[in-house]
């Protein structure tokens, strides 16, 4: 681009929307949230700067237990998503050809276009006491009476993995697709068995896809609200629900902001570690 006065004006015109957007809707709100989390109310409309909200988080077992539980469940869900999605991605990328391959890949994207609310509703119909799975089990004679399968950790896990699959399958299929078949053949020719080829050729090649899939899935799971609440019920103990409770039910914005900030920090740290371990940058992973 040629530089000159008219283009400088153009630059300012192009910068204005993005600066307004990012400063007013992203940066300043987060700074404000941090500031509010660092104050306590000492009298109506009188506030003091203090770390009390963070102290409360660490001294109240319910809060940090929920926090740790959310983190552990998210890690588990990410690992399970990877384990379930990898063979399927490999099948689509390496075992299939042509139309079938494209069709199955598109089929994996379908749930993404459907609202998360609808997907979760579908799982509720399947898993509830009067639901399909319970009726199937009774029909098969495996259980004597109706079984309630909602409102437990397994139900939460099924829903979380389901919601996350797309974000794992797409990067995995993309990276596996770029692996040349002749490399796999060479592995077998050199005497490797299926497992050795998998471990030394396929998985290392797919590592960038595995890393970006895991990062995205972990982030989305950690910040998920609908699935744990609807499938886990009242005892789901998900950290975003704590944030919601503090903000909307208890109207304790100071503590809620502290919670929000802690979740943001956890999410950012994990993303950062993931990017570091895989040697990628954020802009590469989002594409």
């Amino acid at each position: 681009m040629k530089a000159g006065p008219p283009f400088r004006l153009g630059l300012i015109l192009l910068l204005a929307p993005i600066v307004l957007w990012l400063s007013l809707l992203v940066i300043l709100p987060h700074i404000d949230m941090l500031l509010i989390s660092l104050r306590v109310r000492v009298a109506p409309r009188v506030y003091e700067t203090s770390l009390a909200n963070y102290v409360e988080f660490f001294t109240e077992p319910l809060y940090w237990n929920t926090f740790a539980r959310t983190a552990i469940m998210s890690v588990t869900a990410t690992a399970m998503t990877l384990l379930i999605a990898f063979p399927v991605s490999y099948y689509i990328a390496k075992m299939l050809r042509g139309r079938t391959k494209n069709l199955l890949f598109l089929l994996c994207l379908v749930p993404f276009w459907v609202s998360e609310l609808v997907r979760t509703f579908g799982w509720m119909i399947l898993l509830r006491e009067t639901g399909i799975v319970s009726n199937l089990l009774q029909w098969a004679g495996l259980t004597a009476g109706p079984v309630e399968m909602l409102y437990n950790d397994a139900a939460i896990m099924i829903g979380l993995v389901y919601t996350s699959l797309l974000f794992m399958v797409v990067p995995l299929v993309t990276t596996l697709d770029s692996l040349d078949d002749s490399l796999i053949e060479a592995g077998y020719d050199l005497g490797g068995n299926g497992f050795a080829v998998m471990r030394t050729i396929v998985v290392p090649h797919a590592m960038p896809g595995i890393a970006s899939g895991c990062i995205v899935v972990f982030m989305l799971t950690l910040g998920n609200y609908l699935t744990p609440i609807l499938l886990g019920g009242k005892d789901s103990l998900w950290f975003t629900d704590q944030i919601y409770t503090q903000f909307i039910t208890r109207f304790n914005w100071e503590l809620g902001s502290a919670f929000g900030f802690l979740l943001l920090v956890l999410s950012s740290i994990i993303v950062w570690i993931g990017l570091r371990l895989s040697g990628q940058t954020l802009s590469e992973s989002v594409k």
Binding site: L24, D32, Y225, T240, Y244, F247, S257
Partner: peptide, 12 residues
């Protein structure tokens, strides 16, 4: 996370 984006804008 969407929830945090929501509360930060609410607070601001």
């Amino acid at each position: 996370p969407g929830v945090i984006l929501g509360i930060s804008i609410l607070v601001f």
